Computed example of a mutant assay.
Amino acid sequence: MSTNALYNDLSGYYDLMCADIDYPAQSDGVRRLHQLFGRGGRNHLDLACGTGAHVRHFIDHGYNSQGLDINQPMLDVASQRCPEAQFTCQDMCDFRFDQPFDLITCFLYSIHYSDGIEKLRSCIQSVHEALASNGVFCFNAVDKNKIDNSRFVGHTADFNGSSFVFRSGWHYPGQGEKQALKLSIQKTTDGVTQAWHDEHPMVALGFEEMASLLQPYFEVHIFEHDYERIEPWDRHAGNALFVCVKG
């Protein structure tokens, strides 16, 4: 099953798959970072916005938010959640907007969906062009050198008489610029279980490599992956928040 087919088939269950994500805390944390590093504007774009859960929180706090995603079924759900927002079906590695944004976000490690270093570079260039002067680009990332291939996270959920088990984990083969996000989803209804297994190809790089790609375009700050506290990255953790300010 292809990557996009999985999401097309399960777009109605995406929020269940992400039920353990603290969207308010993530949104609030990035808003604080924007207040510290930005120029105060409120035009916001969320890349790989999915079903619009983050967009909803930014709108509720006074932002003029838009969302971008490559998957139209996700955007259809997002439009229902945030009818006052504009959602656009575009590739985040090559997008254009007429108006500049003060804040561009990319949550849930979605920056890695740029499949390959050149695609990631194109994404960074598109972000830079779309940001206003002193605009902020904020995203989270995983360092390929610190991935534990044996580690998976998961949770269960019940919906409309069915039980779901969701599991995901990173896999890096040890060399090269490609890693995978492995997903497994089980749905049990009336004792009958269906299962989906997929691997999403993603770009792999260390944080030093990431910073070197960003620095020609931005002033780069790297923080601990903690949306409730603002602390510099300790250079040991494998997850981090990047805050990039356009000069």
Rank of each mutant, 00 (worst) to 15 (best):
N140K: 00
S114I: 02
S110L: 08
S133I: 03
D94W: 01
V77F: 08
F97E: 11
M92Q: 05
D91E: 03
L131D: 12
G52L: 03
D91L: 06
G40Y: 08
C106L: 05
R81D: 03
P83N: 06
H44Y: 15
T105L: 06
C138R: 04
D94C: 03
E84Y: 04
R96E: 00
R56N: 13
F137G: 12
F107V: 05
D115E: 12
D91M: 03
C89L: 08
V77T: 06
Y113P: 06
R121L: 00
V77P: 01
I59C: 12
D76R: 03
F58Q: 11
Q99F: 09
D60Q: 15
V142Y: 06
A53V: 10
R96S: 13
Q66L: 11
L47R: 08
G38W: 10
H112L: 10
V55H: 03
Q66D: 08
S65C: 05
S65H: 01
Y63S: 09
I124Y: 09
E84W: 09
H34S: 10
C89K: 13
Q35F: 04
A48G: 04
Q125F: 13
T88S: 14
V55N: 03
C138G: 00
N71S: 09
E129L: 14
I111D: 09
F107P: 01
F58I: 06
L108D: 11
D94F: 10
F58G: 10
I111L: 15
